[in-house]
Amino acid sequence: MEVTAADTTSASQTARTKLSENFDTFLVLLTAQLQNQDPLSPMDSSEFTQQLVQFSQVEQQISTNDNLETLISQQSAAAAALPLSYLGRAALIESSRATLYEEGSARWSYSFEEEPASVTLTVKDSSGRIVYSEEGVAASGAHNFTWDGTKANGEAATPGVYTLSVVALDDAGETVASKVNVMELVTGVDFTSGAPRIVTSSGSHDLEDVLGVLDAS
């Protein structure tokens, strides 16, 4: 559950108001008891002294909550400022989506920690239809893949967002894990879902998927 500054502020204000009301009630009762106590058998002061200590402890806890509110507000402001600093810069993103521009190409990079025996690269359109495939580089490490937009049937693909699927197998036919990245220009920041997301030509992306940011050249 995400805790926001508004949540802690509301809780702290409510607690402070309640504490003030309870303390006022305590003072009224204490004053009445002192005024009506038997002079020959005065009240034991240890009980209300203990209550005063408890009120002090609660007040200290509320002050701690106030400090927490300030910290959360500062963190929220920092979290909002970070993606804004990405605007107009090129971001390396862990994503299989890339944009094919008119009279341009779509670019991805893919990598393996272990060396595969075979690699198949498949490009799909926004509807999930396969438009192109070829063999990839069967070696560990990172590799670049550029697709010029020519489909398997020789026709030119429509500009838009395409997805790269990487299937890598070892000698035993077992799947070798792979990662796919794209480098895209950050054109906006989306705050509508709560946590900020950067916006590129291929869509929006979580900040945790941003691997690095470079000044666009």
Rank of each mutant, 00 (worst) to 15 (best):
V210I: 13
Y101H: 13
G104W: 05
P42C: 08
L87V: 09
S73K: 13
G188T: 11
G136Q: 02
N22G: 02
A15R: 09
V199D: 01
A138G: 07
Y132V: 00
F145I: 05
Q35P: 02
I93C: 03
F55W: 00
S95N: 11
G141S: 10
T158C: 13
F48A: 07
L84A: 12
F55E: 01
S178T: 04
V123M: 08
P159K: 14
A157P: 06
L185D: 04
L19Q: 06
T9R: 14
G160P: 03
S85L: 07
R129T: 09
L19D: 05
V119N: 03
N153V: 08
A195W: 06
M183D: 00
E155S: 15
S105G: 12
R89G: 06
V123H: 06
F26H: 06
P196F: 08
L207T: 06
I130R: 10
E135A: 14
E184D: 08
A90H: 07
R107S: 01
A177T: 05
A152V: 10
A172S: 14
S204E: 04
S202N: 07
L211K: 14
Q54T: 00
H205N: 07
H143N: 03
D209L: 10
M1A: 15
K124H: 05
E115V: 05
Q75E: 13
R197H: 11
G104P: 11
I72G: 09
Q54I: 00
E114R: 14
M183N: 03
G141D: 06
W147L: 04
S56K: 01
S178K: 00
S202M: 06
F145P: 00
A156K: 15
S76H: 09
A91N: 08
S20P: 04
V161A: 06
E155M: 07
G173Q: 07
T158D: 13
R89Q: 15
Q61I: 04
V28R: 15
S96T: 15
L34G: 12
A195F: 03
E113A: 08
